[in-house]
């Protein structure tokens, strides 16, 4: 049932380890993939596509070697395959200009400043993935335990318990 992935783009191993650890509750429901720069993140997106896995959420640092996180988000927004992915900047260093650009041109959904808290990050991820699941053409019921259960159940009821949109 793992058909949706969370992509973490962060170049510092210590920070990446911490993010992955905080995402542990979502393990088993979502594929969690990490990349340490934008080039690697592109490979991950490609590899996931060949496995038939769709990117549901991108948690992206801003200051990355080579390409900035904001630019990568803009790039994802321009691609039909990843346009629907929820996009979150997780950073301590994106200035106002970059953030405005991310909002206007990448459809940025949320901004999590560093340092983050486990509850805050998990809350954001839960909320964003709930939105993604509700917008997408997927069976929402399997995600009830890990995402916003009441909303998913309500939506499933609206859809006649089929889970999928008709």
């Amino acid at each position: 049932m793992t058909e949706i992935a969370i992509l973490v783009v962060e170049d510092e191993p210590e920070v990446r380890d911490a993010i992955e650890r905080d995402l542990a509750p979502f393990q088993g429901y979502f594929r969690i993939e990490a990349a340490d720069d934008v080039a690697d993140a592109r490979d991950v997106v490609r590899e996931l596509a060949t496995e038939g896995i769709v990117v549901g959420l991108v948690l992206c640092d801003h200051l990355l070697p080579g390409t900035l996180g904001t630019d990568f988000l803009v790039e994802l927004h321009g691609d039909a395959a990843t346009r629907g992915a929820r996009k979150v900047l997780l950073t301590g260093q994106a200035g106002l200009e970059d953030t405005i650009r991310a909002v206007n041109e990448a459809g940025l959904d949320h901004y999590v400043p560093k340092p983050w808290t486990a509850a805050g990050l998990q809350g954001t991820v839960r909320e964003q993935l709930t939105e993604f699941v509700l917008e997408g053409d997927v069976d929402v019921l399997p995600y009830v335990p890990v995402l916003d259960g009441p909303r998913l159940v309500a939506a499933a009821a609206d859809r006649g318990w089929e889970g999928r949109r008709t």
Partner: peptide
């Protein structure tokens, strides 16, 4: 020793 995400995959 730390390895890159690419190597890990």
């Amino acid at each position: 020793p730390p390895i890159s995400t690419r190597e890990e995959r």
